[in-house]
């Protein structure tokens, strides 16, 4: 390429820049939710086996990951905390989900989150990076978020927010698997699955906190996980969402999974001696028809491993 061609191309691209403000159109999640969603709950001390058993309760990973799917696994890697401090998703659960997705024939498995603390420290000290990197499979990538990939998305059905910057890879995934950890939170009382989706937002996320429950429901209208696997192996009862003291952590060796994000959150709430109706995001998402929050209407499948 000579200089003249280079300048010409630059001009052409600049024209493209002025004409195409990068915008992402996401069709709102309209698929009618299952009127009686299946929720699988398992307990066991071998967390890899437990994860597999809970997924088996939903009919196996093959129900969610089809051959050739681009899969995103979105754990909570929000904090520079160790696995036993219960602020991030347990690394073994992340590992097990990745292995299951690979076995189901995923063409790629991406793992990422946008931490609140330094991303490198959070990836490292959550134990997740060290659990994922050694996987000898070129399809698996754990990566820090690329600032260039946040795209503005119109939230057509949004009641509290009309536009959000969302990570492109999360939107484009064939199968987005939400793998939150269940824990205490000062504002939303608990942070579970819907709250975990905040990890794919760009910009100033602090502004989400005004009317947080409704905004999380609004976000759920454009970002619907194919599968929600909730880590309640050890739960943070106080001083969430980052904890830091083991005195606040209780081990209950439980994993919950469902295709319905609202149902998964609602059922998990009961582990904290709370009602689903105590969590604003659950109530708001249910009101918008995004999922079921009545425990009675769920089909519960319990497993042990």
């Amino acid at each position: 390429m000579n200089r003249r061609e280079f300048l010409r191309d630059v001009l052409l691209w600049s024209a493209g820049l002025s004409l195409s403000v990068p915008r992402f159109t996401v069709s709102a999640v309209l698929a009618a939710p299952d009127p009686s969603p299946l929720v699988a709950v398992g307990t066991g001390a071998d967390y890899v086996k437990l994860t597999a058993a809970v997924l088996e309760g939903l009919g196996g990973m093959g129900n969610f990951v089809r051959h050739g799917d681009r899969v995103v696994v979105k754990p909570n890697i929000g904090w520079d905390r160790s696995p036993d401090q219960a602020a991030n998703t347990h690394p073994l659960v992340v590992r097990a989900v990745i292995d299951q997705a690979l076995a189901a024939g995923a063409s790629s498995v991406q793992v990422f989150d946008r931490p609140c603390n330094d991303p490198r420290r959070s990836y490292k000290n959550s134990g997740i990076e060290d659990m994922v990197r050694p996987i000898k499979d070129r399809r698996v990538r754990i990566e820090h978020m690329d600032e260039r990939k946040f795209v503005p998305v119109d939230i057509a059905r949004g009641k509290a927010v009309s536009r959000l910057e969302i990570y492109r890879d999360a939107l484009e995934a064939d199968c987005y698997i939400n793998v939150p950890v269940a824990k205490h939170h000062g504002l939303s009382r608990l942070t579970i699955g819907l709250k975990n989706s905040m990890g794919v937002l760009g910009g100033n996320r602090g502004r989400m906190h005004h009317d947080l429950g409704q905004k999380l429901a609004d976000l759920a209208t454009v970002l619907r996980p194919s599968l929600n696997i909730i880590d309640a192996i050890r739960i943070l009862l106080r001083n969430g969402p980052q904890g830091g003291s083991l005195a606040d952590v209780k081990t209950i060796d439980t994993i919950i999974a469902s295709a319905d994000p609202v149902a998964a959150d609602a059922w998990t709430t009961t582990l904290f001696d709370l009602e689903p109706g105590d969590i604003e995001s659950t109530v708001a998402a249910h009101a918008m028809g995004l999922g079921e929050m009545n425990i009675d209407k769920m089909r519960l499948r319990t497993v042990t491993a």
Binding site: C116, G186, G206, H209, H210, P241, Q242, G243, D248
Partner: peptide
């Protein structure tokens, strides 16, 4: 709003 409390790092 509880953003400050949420991020406060002391155990």
């Amino acid at each position: 709003c509880i953003v400050c409390e949420e991020h406060c790092p002391t155990p």
